[in-house]
């Protein structure tokens, strides 16, 4: 069963959703298997990053902005310049990640957290989790 979580982003950048994913795993009662975290948006992404230096999170976001800056000459003008660049960023980074879990524990390393990556905030958003396991 897909579990859906809502969040309101207050800015562009990376937002840690690891606690919600771990809580969802605990609630599932599953011990071993795979879970998929997915976001039903085309201007935000999902990624894994180290949480230890907050400036590192800013570096990642700054770099994607350097590669795909918000500009006014995108052909897609239906929404906003930020929205147009956000589509490109989201297409590059991707909208989902899968993780194994074993013994009820999420398969993340010491320096890994799961981040919702907002490219067109502030927005009302969602992410979804699906489990396959026993």
């Amino acid at each position: 069963m897909v579990k859906t979580y809502k969040l309101s982003t207050d800015r562009n950048g990376l937002i840690d959703i690891t606690p919600q994913v771990e809580a969802a795993l605990a609630e599932s009662g599953l011990s071993d298997g795979i879970l998929l975290v997915s976001i039903p948006h085309s201007t935000a992404s999902l990624t894994v990053m180290s949480p230890w230096d907050p400036l590192g999170l800013e570096d990642v976001h700054d770099e994607i902005n350097r590669i795909v800056p918000t500009r006014i000459d995108f052909k897609h003008q239906y929404d906003t310049p930020q929205d147009a660049s956000a589509h490109v960023k989201a297409a590059i980074v991707g909208h989902s990640r899968s993780f194994f879990f074993e013994g009820g524990k999420l398969g993340l390393g010491h320096s890994q957290k799961i981040y919702f990556w907002e490219f067109d905030g502030p927005r009302s958003r969602q992410f979804q989790i699906q489990f396959v396991g026993q």
């Binding site: 003008q77 929404d79 906003t80 310049p81 930020q82 929205d83 067109d120 905030g121 502030p122 009302s124």
Partner: peptide, 10 residues
């Protein structure tokens, strides 16, 4: 305002 991003899309 939306395109100037003085108002967000939401």
């Amino acid at each position: 305002a939306e395109v100037l991003m003085t108002k967000t899309m939401d």
